[in-house]
């Protein structure tokens, strides 16, 4: 009877999982293996794939555009993620207490996250940081004649980084939820011992939040590496000026779907998987040193 029941559940479980398992094999595992194979070939969708061995991978490291794109992406991720999370944490701590109006404030600070990934906001950004845009209008009051921020190579990426940081709302919501779980007694006890607000933040709040910081760092890094829409819209699909906004995803798109070098694009995709894996691996390894579990 018992054995019969277990076997029965074995079947039932898989029936419920069936759509997902079909998707896992058909839409995830098979495409992954196929793209690994394609990354060792030259393929343009119309003619059969030609074996290239390690050709694509070797070519990657001699491709100045790829190296540039890699550098741009690293700068984008390594600058925007820390700022984004720092703002999220700061605002969450400030808006933690339930006083009057705080719910509306939280909603306002979250709004950019709601809209930020859209084409509409990317269009807005292009206008704000343009030659006769909003930023230069304000700078004009101070007698400063601003450049066209989005078409100047040295500033173009910064506008995208600002756009990413602006969207700190989602991480803020996660921090807010975990701040609520810290028992109030901790703060009361610390107060009695004479610890000020700043001391309380560094000795109670921050250590107790580290698991959440860890979670946010991993998730934000993974999604930042895949950022696409802003760089596409702001640069008009080119990654310009002078490849200054050529984020990794955009370059994959250009190689794979406008130049139809699909083998090359696949090699880039696998490099990206490797890079993201290395980053998350490093963060996981470092977690022992700074993540505090109660």
């Amino acid at each position: 009877m018992r054995k019969h029941l277990t076997n029965h559940n074995e079947l039932i479980g898989h029936i419920f999982l069936l759509p997902w398992i079909l998707g896992l094999f058909g839409l995830t595992l098979f495409p992954m293996i196929a793209s690994l194979y394609l990354s060792f070939t030259h393929y343009d969708l119309l003619t059969p794939a030609r074996w290239a061995g390690l050709g694509n991978y070797i070519q990657l490291f001699g491709d100045p555009k790829f190296l540039k794109s890699l550098g741009v992406t690293f700068r984008f991720v390594l600058i925007s993620v820390p700022f984004q999370l720092a703002f999220a944490l700061l605002v969450a701590v400030v808006l933690k207490r339930n006083r009057r109006g705080v719910r509306i404030y939280r909603a306002i600070y979250y709004l950019p996250s709601l809209f930020g990934g859209s084409v509409a906001v990317a269009i807005l950004w292009r206008r704000i940081f343009g030659k006769d845009g909003l930023v230069n209008l304000v700078l004009g009051w101070f007698g400063i004649k601003g450049v066209s921020w989005i078409t100047t190579p040295s500033t173009a990426l910064t506008t995208l980084i600002i756009l990413a940081i602006w969207q700190f709302g989602s991480s803020m919501v996660i921090f807010l939820a975990s701040l609520k779980q810290i028992p109030q007694d901790y703060y009361e006890a610390a107060s009695i011992d004479g610890a000020g607000k700043v001391r309380q933040f560094f000795s109670i709040t921050l250590p107790l939040l580290t698991p959440m910081v860890f979670f946010n760092v991993v998730m934000t890094i993974i999604s930042s590496f895949q950022s696409f829409t802003p760089s596409y819209i702001v640069s008009g699909g080119t990654g310009g000026p002078l490849d200054a906004t050529l984020l990794y995803s955009l370059y994959i798109y250009i190689k794979g779907f406008t130049q139809f070098q699909m083998g090359y694009a696949s090699a880039m995709a696998w490099m990206l998987l490797f890079i993201i894996g290395a980053f998350t691996g490093l963060i996981f390894l470092s977690a022992k040193r700074w993540v505090f579990y109660e």
Binding site: P31, A34, Q226, S249, A265, S266, A269, W270, L272, I276
Partner: peptide
């Protein structure tokens, strides 16, 4: 990353 599935 979605890119590893994209081309196939």
């Amino acid at each position: 990353p979605l890119h590893v599935k994209l081309v196939p």
